[in-house]
Nucleic acid binder design. Structure first.
Lengths: 339, 339
DNA sequence: TTGTAAGCGTTATCAC
DNA sequence: GTGATAACGCTTACAA
């Protein structure tokens, strides 16, 4: 057990040279002779010297930490994003500090403060559902910390952004339903103030319009969890003019719909078609397997991290990029095959 | 945009007092007069001063970072653990630095080195499947960094440990199957060198023995993914003496079994019972919903983080705790109700 | 090629 | 109560 940590000074003393020479040797400074470098490195190894990053960071006025703000951790889409971020970050020599906002503005505020105090190099953020003020993100920029938004972006702040193509995803999903003969397509949405709701709703609406299907507002509901879907769907099915299909804002909701539809004695997809939005294993566990829009969270994470790191490195100084990650419709068993 | 960061010295200059007074006032040192404290805090607020944690860490020779090593991120059990860790850590004023070992020993080695260089306060680790040497963890301890293992623990190193009660979970699952009339219970396991395989296998075997059911080795298979289960199960079902039930090492595998069984025209649970191990939403998406053993990853994370933080704070100096998190059998639709 | 010394922002120690 | 000073471990002009 090392009583006290080994420093550059210990190595210097051991070898009767100066600390600066040790520092330079360890960093492969060109001025230092091959021999000194060797001796120093051997000694560092022997004493199992570990450079103190805290000192280095203070000295250099920077560190290699990327702060990641994520609304939820136990969540297929977000954990895929975190995985993409971690992979890119570690490949580029950055460490990931993870924070969960828990969909709370207050938490988000505390997190951004921690991030500023820690003087992280950059921040990757997705807004909590509650957040409708953005000063705390402006503060991040004011403190010279790079910032990239992903998925739940913030329009008011000028930064790079990475989003999923919600509009196109919804459009393709609903067009698929239409192409298989569906005409009365119910839409289960998240609360309407969220960008994803707006974009997917627009995709839904445009798909109907493009196919000359009248929009029936009474088929649009705010319902975005499995539980709510299990409760709401029986009522929807017993409407005078019930839907022939459902488009759900996420796969959890879709599984709730599926459950309720089967429980009502209807066949899927013969009587009722269902399409979700998310991707992941949940869709495969369903019976029939769920048709859904895959969001490619991993790509979102990788792209956002790359954008941020380029900003940190100064490669993309002054440029602001909006990146859109394509979705992919995964056609499975809860929708019919086109006639 | 703040050209340069505000320091304690800026505040001192602004108020014509010394930096040490400012420091003490901000920290509510008892020696400082109420008035000075007020003035200093007002000024700090006005200049939007943010304490530089890098300087503080260097000065104090410590930081508030907990390093977390996790084999996989997109994984219900592990992401639940991370959520428990993050929650506990942030409540106690610690930040979480997340690393994914990707089940690789090499990666794990690099991660522990980063962790030591960063002088993190503590580490929470779960071994990669590859790892069979432990010097890198001993190094962590040698560098005076606290260490707690969770789930995939390491026996060779003396530290706190938090594990799931795999044995009892398997025992209760198999006893449940037996109590509902099952006699020929197939076991789909992970590779046998893993602790979880051994423990759950022992639970499986003991449940049979306790109920005087002969063990049939030909009903034990290495099969731990959905894909493999979909491939293997039809063969198992067409055995001369096929099983009447399946106990799977995880829920993904169980969903594969369920798929294959239904495809073979058998009814679940009337003809075949299925029980998984994991918990989470996947089990609910199945039809019928999957009976499974809930592992309480969130609890594992919370417990491990608490143990680590107590160690860091010196509350539990010199003690080493082994904590076992209880599992819970969630009886659902893929098993029969007891007669 | 190597050494000296200053300084990153903070706090602990010792004076006053 | 408050101020001066040193120190945490490292890098980097500037000197030699």
């Amino acid at each position: 057990m090392a009583k006290t940590q080994i420093t550059i000074i210990d190595i210097a003393r051991e070898l009767n040279i100066s600390p600066s020479t040790v520092s330079r040797a360890l960093r492969n400074h060109p001025d230092i002779s091959r021999k000194t470098v060797e001796i120093v490195k051997e000694c560092a190894e022997r004493l199992s010297y570990k450079p103190n990053e805290m000192a280095l960071n203070l000295r250099l006025g920077r560190n290699n930490i990327i702060g990641v703000i994520v609304p939820e951790i136990v969540h297929y889409f977000f954990s895929s994003i975190v995985q993409g971020i971690e992979e890119t970050a570690s490949a580029e020599g950055f460490n990931v500090m993870l924070f969960r906002s828990e969909e709370s503005y207050e938490k988000e505020l505390k997190i951004t403060e921690s991030l500023i105090n820690a003087r992280v190099a950059g921040v990757l953020a997705s807004l909590s559902k509650e957040t409708d003020r953005y000063e705390h993100y402006q503060q991040i920029l004011d403190n010279d910390i790079k910032l990239v938004f992903y998925d739940r972006i913030c329009i008011g702040i000028i930064t790079d952004r990475v989003v999923v193509d919600d509009y196109a995803g919804a459009l393709s999903a609903v067009e698929h339903l239409i192409s298989t003969g569906c005409r009365r397509i119910a839409f289960y949405s998240s609360p309407l103030h969220l960008e994803i709701s707006k974009n997917r709703r627009n995709g839904y609406l445009d798909a109907l319009r493009k196919n000359s299907i009248p929009v029936d507002e009474s088929l649009i509901f705010v319902c975005d969890t499995r539980e709510k879907a299990m409760e709401l769907t029986p009522q929807v099915l017993s409407l005078p003019e019930p839907p022939d299909s459902f488009f759900a804002i996420n796969d959890h909701t879709a599984t709730g719909i599926l459950y309720a539809v089967k429980k009502a004695g209807l066949r899927v997809p013969e009587d009722i078609s269902i399409c979700g939005f998310s991707g992941g294993d949940l869709a495969l566990a369903c019976d029939p397997m769920l048709t859904t829009v895959e969001q490619h969270g991993y790509e979102v994470g990788k792209t956002a991290a790359k954008l941020l790191i380029d900003k940190i490195k100064g490669i993309t100084h002054g440029q602001y990029t909006n990146r859109i990650i394509k979705t992919k419709l995964m056609v499975r068993g809860t929708t019919k095959t086109a006639p």
